[in-house]
Structure formats: structure tokens, C-alpha cells
Design a protein around this nucleic acid. Structure first.
Length: 864
RNA sequence: GCCCCCGUGGCGGAAUUGGUAGACGCCAGCGACUUAAAAUCGCUUGAUCCGAAAGGAUCGUGCCGGUUCGAGUCCGGCCGGGGGCACCA
């Protein structure tokens, strides 16, 4: 297109334009979701943020992806629910209270206000009327009620157990929140403490949580695998061993769990956890054992420690009678490598076929028996190394000659017959420990009474509200030391009693917020059944992979718990899940080793130097943006300098959304230039376009047809890309389409008509990604309605297929050239055309083809 | 240790079911416009070799091997990077 003479450079004023359209969307309540059973719904949700104070680039990426889906589905005619809220309870608020002397509530709500403003500047198609914060009593009162229902149904219980204690946050942690022996937030090595704590019975659903993973076909394989491993199902057997003391007197039964009952004839000792009740019972009268138990407790659970820790045992004054070999007894040990939490806290040692047992037996001079032999007859030195592979059973009476799997079945049958064992399934998953000794969380609605025990808070007294007047001048739980809050009469007998001062793990808050979004203002129940039934499940959930186990498993559990108490009939909360990658940036280090922010450096030639004194800077690899490495870029500044559309466009370009994205200055300016270029192309073209609604020409010029093909193919391609979360490909496709539009010479009426069509399509296609620019251009094209309300364009099928195709011609699989053929040219004709290709003739060098393979519309391969 | 994922130009990355490897973008280089710069526009850009040029040849998707008319894609074995779990019996 020829620019008008001396045309001033058209500049797109994003600041003005973006706030203009944001205001229009807000005034018209464009994105407000209302239940309409006549229309298909689509629920798009991004994991809601913790109100830390400012949004970061990870949020920008997450919400941009969600917004593309939401706006696209909306244009496709779905009734879209796209809400936003705040995961507002949690420790940072308490830490701020201690450091900055500001109340957690004030701190949290100020952060929410600041972040809401930031999110609004991104131009997200959110229904803000459904906003919620989990720290609001109007939210957590329902949570307390649900917990009481679960308690009544036997899904919540109190138990004394060895638990993980985070010494920095001064609270217990659930198993899922201990990563490599360290607290998930603090990174401090966790300690073992024996405490009575509230638990939710997630293990009740272990099998279902595992088997239903197979049906979640719109979840990443990786997440399903991680959950499956976490649940950790093992088939095996429980075996009962009769215990005696040295004199042969009966000392009761010992139950062990094993996944290798086939090796039972190889048993040479029993090992019990130091926390096993039997050991605990013997310890008081045995100072040596007491000392051993104390030593075991000291050993941490950190990976490095566990790896290097030597196997230790303490021989108990007991013998165990082999259930299948009359007269045979084995010694019984307390051992440091047996976990109380798994199985029965006791194992039988088979050193011939287990690494750990082998190490233990070698150390204590216990017999090492071979009961499995390699199927190929290879002789083994079983004293030197255990044999853990598959093979045939030997030295095992009725099991001899059987394969491992068959032997397992046979021995279980025999154990059951004799009443000394049974086949069982064991899970690695433990119940969810939900008590936290912290203030800024949802109070657990229970009351401890000396005579009545632990009693639920009556419904009429809900919600149990957090008191505001608390102090943070000392470590520990402010609720516990509050002068009056915990002192209440027992609801059952009326005598003085004590309120539970622990609060819930904040992962409970996030286990049902998606349900609450379906009727966020309902006071009488967590949600309206009808609304919930219409909107749920979440059709597309988007968030970080770091919640693969934690939040996503807890939410799946909570949904089932609600089903158990008849609140819903649903099994699964999230139909589709997408896990986005992190936002990374190069790291910079000054010569003195301190980290520098991207603003503190500059590039001079090929060198990177410090802005302040031009000293050299060491450029490190790209890592996740983090305050400690200072490699952060503030979304606010990007939006101010380049606009929300540029930030969004860059987030979607280049990197596939599930992979990590490297944030670069060059990438952002590139995205910005494209916004400007688009605006220019469109603005210049619009002057030459026929008026809106001009009748479609009867015939099209070749140029017009080519443009129309490009436009309609772009619709089909882009739709497919968005549905598949291939945003980077969608962006590339839009670049190509823009290049095509830019190169058009609109020299006749049909081409000008096609150009308007192409621009209108283009603007609608970029709508989900750069909504402000798209809305502005839509308006400039002459539309009076909002692009946000415009339907997605429909491609004309006839324009999606080409009438000529380029076919590759190969000689022995190597490309010699290409030929242009009409689509669906018969094989014979294609072969003839290929054989006539000069490059092929030259390559053939007079030889006769032995065979010609023709793949229609694709390739002709000539073999000699 | 066990389980899983990923290795494609200077970079981010494309490439239906095996069928023209490198789309699109970034960076870089050259040129146009300009007094100049910025902005913008145009061209070049996997490697090596032959040729003045047009053009041509060979190699090339981490490495080795296999299946196939044909392999980035499938199979086997290595090497490298990342993630999850971890004394789970």
C-alpha cells in the first residue's frame, strides 16, 4: 500500500487507548457472568494469587494465557466464567506484622487493593463482581461448616503422631509440604515432634484418587504421573509373626508389611521402627534401647543425611517364629531405617534380595540366604551383593521353581489359609495434617472440654472469627496467648472450656474457592447447588507445576469429601489443566559478588558493565525471576513504558507456554514495534477500504483470492493453535498474516473488499491476545459495537484448500526438486511429471528407475 | 538409587499419521531514506566446497547402530541437561 504523501508517522498511543477501553468494558460490565442454562458454559480459571503486594511476571504470564482462552471461548459463543480472588491467609502477613508492626489484616487488604489495580491495568476479561478473599469471614465460615460436616462423617479426626515441625515458621507441616526434608516455605530442616493434630482422611480416597487420574485426559501426563507416584500404591502382604522371649514364653504377635512375600523363606531378622509401640514399650526398662531410640530421633530426614546414615540396629530380647517354617526363629531388632508411617512400622529382613537388609545383615553378621535365582542359571555370590531382579524361587519348599509373581500369589494364599497373613494394598499417601500453630488462618471450629472432650462449635456460633487484638512481639501463636479469646463455655455441658487455637493449613482455603466463585455472595451455604451445577467443573485451569501434588491433590480430595456429605455429586473439580512455565531472566553479578538488577547494568559493544561505574559485570545463566538474585522486571514498569498489549504479546510469543520463558529487553521492544506496525498498517489501509457493509463482489481478482485464502486459513489455523495452547505458533501465524496484508496492492475493487475482510478477520484474531489494540482498530474499521462482543470469524471451507500443491521429488530419498501439480493429481500423472523434472533426469544419469513411490499431494520418490 | 521429560542455526523456536528440516520472531550484516541520528523500509543470514555470476555439490536435528523407498519423528544402546520421589520394605 502506498503511504500518503508526507504522512506523519502514525503513532499508537497505548496509554490513552488502553485505559479508554478498560473503562468501557467496566462501565458496560462486559465480562460479568450470568447463569444461562440455554447457553453452553465455559469456566476458565487461573490459580488465584497470594496477595504479596505486587504482581510479578509469573502472574502476567499466567493471567495472559487464561485471558486468551477466556476471550476466545467468549467469541466462540460460550457463556464464560472468568473470576479472580485472593488466597489471602498465610505466613507472610504474620511475618510482616512482626517486622513492620502492621496488622496482618491491614497488610493483606492493602496488598489486595494494590494488586487489583495492577491486574486491572492488564485488561483482563475478568468478572470482578465475583471477587473473594479467603481471609474474609463470609468465606471461611462455610469452610468451618464443611469441616464440621466432614468431622461428623468421619473424614476429619485428631491423632497423636510424629509430625514434621518447621522450626522457623514454628508450625507443623503436612507431608506434602516437606520437600527433601525441608519446609516448603522456609527451607529449614524439619524436626520430628509427637503432637496431637487435626487430620483429614485423604487416604480414604487413595484408590479413587489414583484410578481416576487415568480419566483426566486434559491434564498433563507429567502431573498425573507425579500424583500417581505420590499416592504410591503397592501390592503386598501383611504377615503375622509369633513373638517369644528367650525362655520361649509368648510375647504376642508382630504384624509386618512386605511387597516381597515370595522371599519369606529368606528371612533372617525382623526390624522395627524406633517409634514402634513394641519398642516404646520396651524402652523404659532398657537404658541402651532408650539411648538408641533417642539417637534415631536426632537423625534428620534431609536427603543427604539419609543417604550417608549408616544402618543401625538394637537387638531386642525377643525372637520371632517363622510362620511357614516350624521351629525356625529369627532375632528382632529396632532399626533406624524402618519408618513408622509406612505399612505397620515393622518389616522382615531378607538380606539376599534387598539392598538395605543386606547392608544391615552384613553389619550384624546375620545369615544371608538366597531364595531367588536368575532364570538363566547364573550363579551368584549372595554374600557379596543382594539379588533384586526377577528370577525363579529356590530354597523355599512349595515355592521352588516358581516365578516371582506366581510365588507371591501362592504364598499369600497359603498365609491366608493358615491364618498368619493376608494379601493387602499399601499406599504411600498419608492423611493430610491440617493444624497450624499460626494466627493468620481460618480458626478450627472446635472446643476442648475437660469432661466432654473435643466438641464441635455449634452451627449458630459460626463463623469462629479471628480476634483483631493480637500481639506479634513474641514467637509462637498469638491466639494461644490471647487473654480472652480461647476461654469459652463448653457448648455441651456449659463448663469452662478452651477454644482450639490452631488454624487450618491455608491449602484448605484454596481447595474449594473455585466452587465458591459459582455463587460468591451466598450467605446460607458455600454455594448454590444450581449455580454450582451449571458452572462446575472448571473447564480450563491454569497455573504453575509447583502445585502438581499439593493444591491439585488437596482440591481433588476436598471435592470428594463434599460428595461424601452430599453437597455435590461431582468427583473431579478440574476438567482441563494446563501448567505454565516460569518467567526467567539473565542474572548479573558485580565484581564484588553482589547481584545487580537489569536496570543497574548496560551493554557497551559486546560487554556488559555496571551503569554506575562502568565496572565489568558477570552475566549468569537465565533463572527464574527472584528477589534474591535481583533478576526481576516489574510488570508495572513494562505496562507503563510499552503497554499491557505489548507485555501480553511478548508473553505469548516465541516460547511454548508450558516451557520456561526468557524475558529479554529485545523481545519486549520487538513486541512493541509490532504493535506500532500493526496500527500503522491498519490505519493506512482503512482510508482506502470500501465502506462497512459493502456488497460482496461477484468475482474476485487473483490477488483478492490469494488474500482471502490467507485470511481464512489464518482463522482455521489460529483457532486450532489456541485450542491446543500453541500460543507461540498462533503468534507466528499472525505475523505471517500481517506480512501478507502489508504486501497487498489494493488496485481493484474486489481486492479492496478482500482487504477489508482480511483486516476485520485480523482484528478479531488478535482480540484475545492484544484486546485494547484490537478494540481500537475494530472501532476504526467503523464498528459501533464492541469487539469483545463480536463473534469469532467463521472460515469458508472452500478457501481452506489449495487447488495446486507443491510436490517434492526425491531420488533415493534425497530431494532433487519440486513440481507444482493440481490437487489430487492421479499417481500416474504425478509420476510422469516427476520423471520429467530436469534435475531428476540429470540425477538419474540414464539409469532406469527400479521403483517409484508416490504419496499423493506430498512426494514422489524415485528409487534406482 | 527409582520414575519421568527434553537435546533442531548465533538465540527463542516451527515441522499432522515417518514424506521439501529450519516457518515466524530476535540478534547480526549490508543497503535506502536523512545534514546526522532515531524511527521506518528493502535485502542477506545452517555449515563446507565449486563457480565471475546464474547456479551447483556435499554434509547437517547430542553420539553410535538398526528398521524403511524415505527418520528430527519409530526401535536399541550411550552421552548431556532438567524435573519428581527418595531408607516407602
Amino acid at each position: 500500500m502506498s503511504p500518503t504523501q508526507a504522512a506523519p508517522t502514525v503513532r499508537y498511543n497505548f496509554t490513552e487507548t488502553e485505559s479508554k477501553w478498560q473503562k468501557v468494558w467496566e462501565e458496560r460490565q462486559t465480562f460479568r457472568a450470568v447463569m444461562d442454562k440455554a447457553r453452553p458454559k465455559y469456566y476458565v480459571l487461573e490459580m488465584f494469587p497470594y496477595p504479596s503486594g505486587r504482581i510479578h511476571m509469573g502472574h502476567v504470564r499466567n493471567y495472559t494465557q487464561g485471558d486468551v482462552i477466556a476471550r476466545y471461548k467468549r467469541a466462540k459463543g460460550f457463556n464464560v466464567l472468568h473470576p479472580m480472588g485472593w488466597d489471602a491467609f498465610g505466613l507472610p502477613a504474620e511475618n510482616a506484622a512482626m517486622e513492620k508492626k502492621v496488622h496482618p489484616k491491614k497488610w493483606t487488604y492493602e496488598n489486595i487493593a494494590a494488586m487489583k489495580k495492577q491486574l486491572k491495568s492488564m485488561g483482563l476479561s475478568l468478572d470482578w463482581s465475583r471477587e473473594l478473599a479467603t481471609c474474609d469471614p463470609s468465606y471461611y465460615r462455610h469452610q468451618q461448616k464443611m469441616f464440621l460436616d466432614f468431622w461428623k462423617a468421619g473424614l476429619a479426626y485428631r491423632k497423636e503422631a510424629w509430625v514434621n515441625w518447621d522450626p522457623v515458621d514454628n508450625t507443623v507441616l503436612a507431608n506434602e509440604q516437606v520437600i527433601e526434608g525441608k519446609g516448603w516455605r522456609t527451607g529449614a530442616p524439619v524436626e520430628r515432634r509427637k503432637l496431637t493434630q487435626w487430620n483429614l482422611k485423604i487416604t480414604h480416597f487413595a484408590d479413587e484418587l489414583l484410578s481416576r487420574l487415568d480419566t483426566l485426559d486434559r491434564w498433563p501426563e507429567k502431573v498425573r504421573l507425579m500424583q500417581a507416584n505420590w499416592i504410591g500404591k503397592s501390592r503386598g502382604a501383611r504377615v503375622f509373626w509369633q513373638l517369644t522371649d528367650a525362655s520361649g514364653a509368648d510375647r504376642g504377635k508382630l504384624e509386618i508389611f512386605t511387597t516381597r512375600p515370595d522371599t519369606l523363606f529368606g528371612a533372617s531378622f525382623m526390624a522395627l521402627s524406633a517409634e514402634h509401640p513394641l519398642v516404646q514399650g520396651l524402652a523404659p526398662s532398657d537404658p541402651g534401647l532408650q539411648h538408641f531410640v533417642a539417637e534415631c530421633r536426632k537423625t534428620g530426614t534431609a536427603a543427604a543425611e539419609v543417604e550417608t546414615a549408616e544402618k543401625q540396629g538394637y537387638k531386642l530380647p525377643l525372637l520371632a517364629r517363622h510362620p511357614l517354617v516350624p521351629g525356625m526363629t529369627v532375632p528382632v531388632y529396632a532399626a533406624n531405617f524402618v519408618l513408622m508411617e509406612y505399612g505397620t512400622g515393622a518389616i522382615f529382613g531378607c538380606p539376599g534380595h534387598d539392598e538395605r537388609d543386606h547392608e544391615f545383615a552384613t553389619k550384624y553378621g546375620l545369615p544371608i540366604l538366597q531364595v531367588v535365582a536368575p532364570a538363566d542359571g547364573t550363579k551368584l555370590d549372595i554374600a557379596a551383593a543382594p539379588y533384586v531382579e526377577d528370577g525363579l524361587i529356590v530354597n523355599s519348599e512349595f515355592l521352588d521353581g516358581l516365578g516371582v509373581e506366581e510365588a507371591k500369589a501362592r504364598v499369600i494364599a497359603r498365609l491366608e489359609e493358615m491364618g498368619v497373613g493376608k494379601g493387602t494394598t499399601q499406599y504411600r499417601l498419608r492423611d493430610w495434617l491440617v493444624s497450624r500453630q499460626r494466627y493468620w488462618g481460618c480458626p478450627i471450629p472446635a472446643i476442648h472440654c475437660e469432661s466432654c472432650g473435643v466438641v464441635p462449635v455449634p452451627d449458630k456460633d459460626l463463623p469462629v472469627q479471628l480476634p483483631d487484638d493480637v500481639t506479634f512481639d513474641r514467637p509462637g501463636n498469638p491466639l494461644d496467648r490471647h487473654p480472652t479469646w480461647k476461654h469459652v463455655p463448653c457448648p455441651t455441658c456449659g463448663k469452662p472450656a478452651r477454644r482450639e487455637t490452631d488454624t487450618f493449613d491455608t491449602f484448605i482455603d484454596s481447595s474449594w474457592y473455585f466452587d465458591r466463585f459459582t455463587s460468591p455472595h451466598l450467605e446460607t451455604a458455600p454455594f448454590d447447588r444450581d449455580e454450582n451445577h451449571y458452572w462446575m467443573p472448571v473447564d480450563q485451569y491454569i497455573g504453575g507445576v509447583e502445585h502438581a501434588i499439593l493444591h491439585l491433590l488437596y482440591s481433588r480430595f476436598w471435592t470428594r469429601a463434599m460428595r461424601e456429605v452430599q453437597m455435590t455429586s461431582r468427583d473431579e473439580p478440574f476438567d482441563g489443566l494446563f501448567t505454565q512455565g516460569m518467567v526467567c531472566h539473565e542474572t548479573y553479578r558485580a565484581s564484588d559478588g553482589t547481584w545487580l538488577t537489569p536496570e543497574e547494568i548496560e551493554r557497551e559493544g559486546g560487554k556488559v558493565v555496571r551503569l554506575s561505574d562502568k565496572s565489568p559485570v558477570e552475566v549468569g545463566r537465565s533463572e527464574k525471576m527472584s528477589k534474591s538474585k535481583k533478576n526481576v522486571v516489574d510488570p508495572d514498569e513494562i505496562i507503563r513504558d510499552y503497554g499491557a498489549d505489548t507485555a501480553r504479546w511478548f508473553m505469548l510469543s516465541d516460547s511454548p507456554p508450558e516451557r520456561d520463558l526468557e524475558w529479554t529487553e529485545a523481545g519486549v521492544t520487538g513486541a512493541w514495534r509490532f504493535q506500532q506496525r500493526l496500527f500503522r498498517i491498519a490505519s493506512q489501509a482503512i482510508a482506502t477500504l470500501p465502506a462497512i457493509g459493502t456488497a460482496r463482489p461477484a468475482t474476485f481478482s487473483d490477488a483478492a483470492v490469494a488474500l482471502r485464502r490467507a485470511a481464512h486459513k489464518a482463522i482455521a489455523g489460529l483457532s486450532a493453535d489456541i485450542e491446543a495452547f500453541h500460543f507461540n505458533k498462533a503468534v507466528a501465524r499472525l505475523y505471517e498474516f500481517a506480512n501478507t496484508i502489508d504486501s497487498v496492492e489494493a488496485s481493484d475493487d474486489s481486492t479492496r473488499w478482500a482487504l477489508r475482510e482480511a483486516l476485520e478477520i485480523f482484528v478479531r484474531l488478535i482480540g484475545p491476545m492484544t484486546p485494547h489494540l484490537a478494540e481500537e482498530l475494530w472501532h476504526a474499521l467503523g464498528h459501533r459495537s464492541l469487539l469483545a462482543d463480536a463473534p469469532w470469524p467463521l472460515p469458508e471451507d472452500a478457501l481452506l484448500v489449495d487447488d495446486t500443491v507443491t510436490v517434492a521429488v526425491q531420488l533415493n530419498g534425497k530431494l532433487r526438486g519440486t513440481i507444482s501439480l493440481t490437487k489430487d493429481t492421479p499417481k500416474e500423472a504425478a509420476e510422469a511429471a516427476a520423471l520429467a523434472l530436469p534435475e531428476l533426469v540429470r540425477g538419474l544419469d540414464g539409469k532406469t528407475p527400479k521403483r517409484v513411490i508416490v504419496v499423493p499431494n506430498r512426494i514422489v520418490n524415485v528409487v534406482v
